[in-house]
């Protein structure tokens, strides 16, 4: 399998998994605390970001946060997955560019602890 194809698969599966987790979390929140999700969305789109909607329960926010983490990390997962293949093929140009891109995304992702908290 080519490096490009492998990267695409790894990245898209991770993004898809993230999307599924986000949806599961949202559905759980709608079931557990029906008013919370709607209140949050209406407040967000209505420009009242500081509205008190309550969390209902924090449990559904866990898959949502993990989903967002997976979604935003999908490209990094793809690049990490293909690095050993590029190294095996001794494709130095590709390895250099992958390292540059990975470093750049990692720098912008440095504060990812916010998702966990």
């Amino acid at each position: 399998m080519g490096i490009g194809r492998l990267y695409g698969r790894a990245a898209s599966y991770t993004a898809f998994a993230g999307m599924v987790m986000l949806v599961v979390g949202l559905l759980a929140q709608i079931v557990v605390a029906p008013a919370t999700a709607s209140c949050l969305l209406q407040a967000t789109l209505g420009g009242e970001g500081d509205a008190e909607c309550g969390y209902g329960t924090t449990l559904p926010t866990i898959p949502m946060r993990l989903g967002l983490l997976a979604l935003a990390s999908s490209v990094m997962v793809g690049l990490i997955a293909v690095m050993p293949h590029a190294a095996r093929e001794r494709d130095i140009t590709l390895l250099i560019f992958m390292s540059i891109v990975l470093a750049l995304i990692s720098v912008s992702a440095a504060g990812l602890v916010r998702i966990v908290h």
Partner: peptide, 25 residues
Amino acid sequence: LAVGDAAGLWVYVNSGAVVEQLVAI
């Protein structure tokens, strides 16, 4: 676009500007 936008997205994620419910819909 996927790569460029992922880098930009992290900045917004870290600033707390992402509303998961909105993204999930």
